[in-house]
Every structure is written in structure tokens, then in C-alpha cells.
Amino acid sequence: MIRNLLNQTHVSETEPEPSRRRFLKAGLGACTLLTLPMAATSVHAAIKRPFEKKLSFLNLHTGERTRATFWANGRYIPEGMRAINHVLRDHRTGDRFAIDPDLFDILHQLQYRLRTNQEFHVVSAYRSPATNAKLAEQSGGVAKNSMHTHGKAIDIRLPGRKLSDLRAAALSLQMGGVGYYPSSNFIHLDTGRVRFWGG
């Protein structure tokens, strides 16, 4: 009799288990069905609105401006690069040079870090060897083989932002060189090794 009671107890404990499993499976199935439209919507949105990288510049010497998409759909955009290269040319000679795309990526990361899409005010970008040689004669602070002559450096400021904040944000990226020139109101950025100077 005790054995029969134990058997009955065992059966009553295990009977609800299959129905509990069915309930859980049904619940999980419903959750999966609910998330499918959301997943499809997010994929559709990604296809409809591809990720883009844009930059804006004002050349302080020529007064020229550009806002261009330089990267989209996983590749650099030649038209956008050309538009930026034109504005960042040597304003003294008119010489143009293909600016290193890594420099654009640094500027885009800086823009993201500062949570802004303001245009960068450009003090100096590409410099022809002739221009750089003249500047090196006039100032000891200009390197003879400056990265500006290779399209790998830019000197900028950002209106409405403290230069010290701009420098701090650039340093936090740990991407390339950062020079600080508070007396001339600009910072230097380049695609060389991580280093900093000035101030």
C-alpha cells in the first residue's frame, strides 16, 4: 500500500511536466515570431539608409567650403575625396594632392568624439614642397620633410570649441600625431605614429 502511494505521488509530480514544456515552447515560438518583423525592418533600414561618413571644411585662406561624403557602402567615394582634396590644396600654388584617407578617418572619429558635424576650419593642409621649403626658411617650427607635403597632415580649429578641448579629444583617439599651437589657435593632426607635442 505504501508502495502504491509512492507510485501515485511520483505520477502526480511528473504529470504537469509535459504540459509545462509545451507551454514554454509555445511561448518561445511566439517570441520568435514577434521578433522576425523587427529583424526584417532593421535589415530593410540598413539597405535603405547605408552608413556614410561625411566631413565639412572651410579653407580659411580661400574662403572655399565643402561638405562631402567620403565613405559609404564600405568604400571610399572618389567624388567626395576629390571635392575635399580641392578645398585642402596648397592655396599658395594651387597644387592639389591626394590626401591620405586615414586622415579623413581621424577627422571623422574626432567629429564623432566631439558629437558635432560642424565644419573644420583649415589653417593648412596639403603643402607643395616649394611652399614647405619657404615656410621652413621663415620658421624653425616647420619640418623640412613635413607630413603636409605628403597629404598626411592638417592644421585645424573648430569654431565654438576651446582649442584645449579639441586637443584633448584628438589625444583620446590615440590615432597619429597631435600638435598643439595655442598661440596660433590650431591643432595639427597627422597619420604618423601616435605622439604629441606643444602646449
Rank of each mutant, 00 (worst) to 15 (best):
R65H: 09
I106S: 04
Q109G: 05
E79A: 14
T66N: 09
N73S: 15
R65I: 12
L107C: 12
H121M: 08
G74E: 03
G94I: 04
L36I: 15
K54H: 07
L36F: 13
T66D: 04
N59V: 08
L88K: 00
L24G: 03
G74S: 05
C31F: 14
R22M: 06
L114W: 01
C31Q: 05
N117I: 08
S19W: 08
K25Q: 09
Y76W: 11
Y76Q: 01
P101E: 09
T131I: 09
N117Q: 11
P129T: 05
R115L: 13
H61I: 05
K53E: 08
A26P: 00
N117G: 10
I77W: 00
S128K: 01
K48H: 12
P37K: 13
P18M: 07
G29R: 12
T32C: 15
T35H: 10
Y76D: 02
N117K: 12
K53F: 05
A30R: 12
I106D: 00
T35C: 14
I47Q: 10
T35N: 04
D105W: 02
Q111E: 14
S42A: 12
R127Q: 13
K48T: 12
G27Q: 08
G27C: 06
N59Q: 10
M81I: 15
D100Y: 07
P18K: 10
R127G: 02
L33F: 14
H108N: 14
R96T: 15
I77M: 06
T66F: 05
R127E: 03
P78K: 13
N132S: 07
V123R: 09
P37C: 11
R113W: 02
L107Y: 00
R82M: 10
F51N: 11
N59P: 03
K54I: 05
R115N: 14
A39Q: 07
R89N: 14
N73A: 13
R22L: 11
F97I: 02
K25D: 01
R21E: 01
F57I: 07
P50Q: 08
N85G: 03
Y126M: 03
S124K: 05
H108Y: 13
R21P: 00
W71M: 13
T32M: 12
L24K: 06
R127T: 11
F57N: 04
V122A: 04
H44A: 15
D95Q: 15
T69L: 06
L110K: 06
S56L: 06
R92K: 03
N85R: 03
A130I: 12
F120R: 04
A68H: 04
L110A: 02
T66Q: 07
R75V: 14
T69P: 01
